[in-house]
């Protein structure tokens, strides 16, 4: 749905050049929620602003819903009619909401419809429908200053949906909100994604956002995408920084002669109650040192760190059993043995 290829953005000011995006290839599939995470300065803001060409990329192409936006852009900083029409089909929500303080909530939602040239009656009807969708039908006549942060962002989302976009860009939409409100706004985005089949590209610096609603994620560092993929693909990648940040497990071995294993659950393999099976089959006591698990669509996704009695040599058979179940097993603290075991 959204594809960027070799996207590069270099900011030049007074002879100095700063590379914000350094050849970013991103592929967002239709109907998924895709999260781009990174620290401030990693280039994620430049990335999302390049997707609807609020920021002109220095090189590379952006394709949204089959349209090559970079080709529409033309030369010069002003957006031509083609690009503006394409933009009206991409919704965008902002960290600081960016609602017009001089307009009521309803008039704010009507703004994109005014730009699209709808008649007054149609605009009103549509704006009220959208406010109903985001749960703010009773606030239509309020001014943004009278709303809470979460309500403002809901208005922002309603406004972004007014042009019936198939793609929604979210620029740190929940970063200015408290945890409770963040959850409800994310839930709303998730619902919209499911109900309307909306493709969502969001950028954030909060791992929780990715964890709670994203199907896929990408990690950005210094203007590059370091890792990307669906959440279970990332989990399956050994040593994935994003996976270990999403599902952090800790815990040290309680004694010398113990084996510590990281068990990664993803995909179909995670349907079996493996820990109790293991315990029963081999008659061993298993302690759980740490776990970060989520149940998504009835499947467990995540990691668990468990401890088995005895050294690695004593546990080759149980580990083999776990691997047979299709689980990914990493032995913690003994990389040499892991490699030997892999042979």
């Amino acid at each position: 749905m959204i594809t960027t290829s070799d996207l590069t953005k270099v900011y030049r000011s007074r002879g100095r050049a700063v590379t914000a995006l350094d050849g970013v290839d991103l592929h967002v599939r239709e109907g998924e929620v895709y999260g781009v995470i990174g620290q401030s300065g990693a280039g994620k803001s430049s990335l999302i602003r390049c997707v609807n060409l609020l920021e002109r990329p220095t090189a590379g192409t952006v394709t949204v819903d089959g349209t090559d936006l970079t080709a529409l852009a033309g030369r010069g900083p002003r957006a031509g009619r083609e690009l503006r029409r394409a933009r009206s089909r991409i919704g965008m929500v902002f960290q600081h909401f960016n609602l017009l303080s001089s307009r009521t909530v309803r008039d704010n939602v009507e703004l994109p419809l005014e730009i699209l040239g709808l008649s007054g009656r149609e605009r009103t009807r549509k704006a009220l429908d959208l406010l109903d969708l985001v749960g703010l039908a009773d606030k239509a006549r309020s001014y943004p200053a009278q709303l809470s942060g979460g309500q403002k962002q809901r208005v922002g989302i309603a406004r972004a949906l007014a042009g019936e976009p198939r793609v929604l860009l979210s620029d740190e939409a929940t970063s200015a909100l408290d945890p409770e409100t963040t959850r409800s706004v994310l839930q709303l985005l998730r619902d919209l994604n499911r109900q309307l089949g909306l493709t969502v590209l969001l950028i954030t610096h909060e791992m929780d956002v990715v964890k709670s609603i994203c199907d896929s994620a990408a990690l950005m560092e210094n203007g590059r995408v370091v890792e990307s993929g669906t959440v279970s693909e990332l989990l399956a990648t050994p040593g994935s920084a994003l996976a270990s940040a999403l599902f952090p497990v800790g815990g040290e071995a309680s004694a010398e002669d113990r084996t510590v294993l990281d068990v990664t659950f993803h995909g179909e393999a995670a349907t079996q109650p493996v820990v109790s099976q293991l315990s029963r089959t081999y008659n061993i006591d298993i302690s759980i040192l740490g776990a970060a698990l989520d149940t998504v669509g009835g499947l467990q996704i995540g990691r668990m760190r468990i401890e088995l009695p005895g050294r690695y040599e004593d546990n080759v058979v149980p580990i083999g059993f776990l691997r047979e179940q299709g689980l990914q097993i990493d032995v913690v603290g003994e990389p040499r043995l892991v490699r030997e075991g892999a042979k």
Binding site: L54, R84, R87, S88, F94, S102, I115
Partner: peptide
């Protein structure tokens, strides 16, 4: 606020729209 200008641009508004719908009413 420049963010408001950006919001209108992201909806597909042109410069004239920005002047009419954002700059003048917000600065009123």
């Amino acid at each position: 606020d420049g963010g408001l200008v950006e919001a209108v641009q992201s909806m597909g508004g042109n410069t004239w729209t920005v002047v009419r719908k954002v700059l003048v009413p917000e600065a009123l």
